[in-house]
Design a protein around this nucleic acid. Structure first.
Lengths: 161, 161
DNA sequence: TTGACGCCCAAGATTTCCCATGTTAGCCCA
DNA sequence: TGGGCTAACATGGGAAATCTTGGGCGTCAA
């Protein structure tokens, strides 16, 4: 299954529309999702977006808690309540809700960054800064890859698909 | 099947009507429910609402307790006894019973918050506070996902599809 | 008669759709 | 290998369809 790869620049037109990168639209269609699912990133001033795969991840997270449990309600509020599904117009453009633009500090320009099963939308400046920081942290991760298990800042974790 | 997603603002007009967000009406129709089912939230000053799926969840919850058990009576009283089914007018508006508005502290403005299989109706102020709490616990969950087993507010969960 | 409620109609404001125009990238052929 | 040609994309706007809101009426019931 295709992945979201590479980064693309975009600009909001006078009506607030941006076209999703064609490469990303292809992945979304493969994924069989009619539209894009978006939610604010937890720890970053960015928007996360994706299709069914992303949605399934979230469903999985919420679905572990039983209905009417406190944990479930809180998670659903933070994830579903802040999320949005947008349908691109026939040309593949979407309009970002004001709330998202505010969270990500997006003005008239933005950047789409592929992360494999999902992608992020950033303001160019914020992304540049984030990238720099990420590059630094990456060294630590890399170091932990070659260190014996259990050492390093990033403990290795088992992962499923 | 569609989910209730995102949050919407609403306002009561001079007759006490609010329009249900169009996106939510679509989900309710898909769900095949003629109207909206509402009941006061158990732990929060908010109203919970939904369609057949919500009803099924409630049935399941109550069904777990044996007939004539105290727990069952309590739940049934709280969930069914306080509930109400409203039918939107041709424009998709409903009138909230006074009792609900009182429970949720709703004045003339309110917020609809999608939670997947159901949605909640809050007073804007109360919701803002609740959202903050929800966001914090989401961070905890995220932390517990990457933390060593057994730590964090939320129990560790297995990963993988 | 008065008030609550349901239905109908009428704007206004958005959002969605449709079409037209630059641009870019890839391709074919001389 | 250079020069078009064509197909896909990204854009810009205008037109049409939706949604949200605010009232007007008529009905039913207290």
């Amino acid at each position: 299954m295709g992945r979201f790869l590479s980064t693309f620049q975009g600009r909001l037109d006078s009506k607030g529309r941006v076209s999703l990168p064609a490469a990303f639209r292809v992945v979304l269609e493969e994924d069989g999702f009619a539209g894009v699912f978006l939610h604010p990133a937890l720890e970053q001033p960015a928007i996360e977006a994706g299709g069914n795969r992303l949605l399934a991840t979230i469903d999985g997270l919420i679905g572990r808690f039983s209905p009417y449990s406190e944990a479930r309600d809180l998670l659903a509020t933070a994830l579903y309540g802040q999320a949005e599904t947008l349908r691109p117009d026939p040309e593949g453009r979407i309009v970002l809700p004001e709330r998202f633009k505010a969270h990500a500090g997006i003005g008239s320009e933005l950047v789409f960054v592929g992360l494999g099963e999902k992608f992020r939308i950033w303001s160019p400046q914020k992304f540049t800064a984030h990238l720099e920081e990420a590059t630094l942290s990456l060294r630590d991760v890399r170091a932990s890859l070659s260190a014996p298990d259990g050492e390093g800042k990033f403990p290795p974790v088992a992962r499923g698909t």
